[in-house]
Amino acid sequence: MIEILPRALFLGLSTGIFCLGTCAPVMAPFMLSEERSAYSEKVKPFLLFTAGRFLAYVLIGALAGWTGGLAGNALTRNLAGISLLLLAMLMVIYGLTTGFPQLRFCRMISPYLGRIRAPFAAGILMGVNLCPPFLIAAADVFVMGSAFNGAAFFMVFFAATTVFLVPFIFLGYLSYLPAVRAVGRLSSLIVGAIYFFIGLNSLAS
């Protein structure tokens, strides 16, 4: 098993820039939208998002290794479509509740959003959303025929790609500026609208 891990590491490092591009539109609004003073608070959205992504990777890795495939193309496409739609809704609700808290809808929904920890949920949804590096990694795992090996492969892959996301921690330091927070909240709404369309398109096709 040990011989597959360097390959996972190399794959993660070589495709991590894609992960950066793919996760950035979701991660950036979470890092920018809320004012946080303590360091631990600043990194919290990053850690939650990363934890969600980790959980999704391990689960999908185990599943892919076990089943020897992602259970057919139609299912993976649908999974990606549905996860994008859910992510879109999450981003829109997050953008609305942070940007326009005075709206009645936002006052109603805010407590629930706090409970599901929006960045964590976004991390899971982003993790199961099959971006190109993820699919390359999954192709490797299909041939393993073992849930454990698949999960291990994805853990290493996850660690390698996360290196590229670390700079996002520093975005948290910009959130003390009210203008930056407004930009973060509005970008959450825009990303939500775009992902909603892409999700629908992916389900329709």
């Binding site: 591009g21 950035a24 940007g99 407004a182 930009v183």
Partner: peptide, 20 residues
């Protein structure tokens, strides 16, 4: 007046999206 930040948010999103 919060809406005047929309172009900056939009810029952030399209730059990242174009990159992906």
């Amino acid at each position: 007046y919060t809406l005047r930040f929309f172009p900056y948010a939009f810029l952030l999103v399209i730059v990242l999206w174009a990159f992906i």
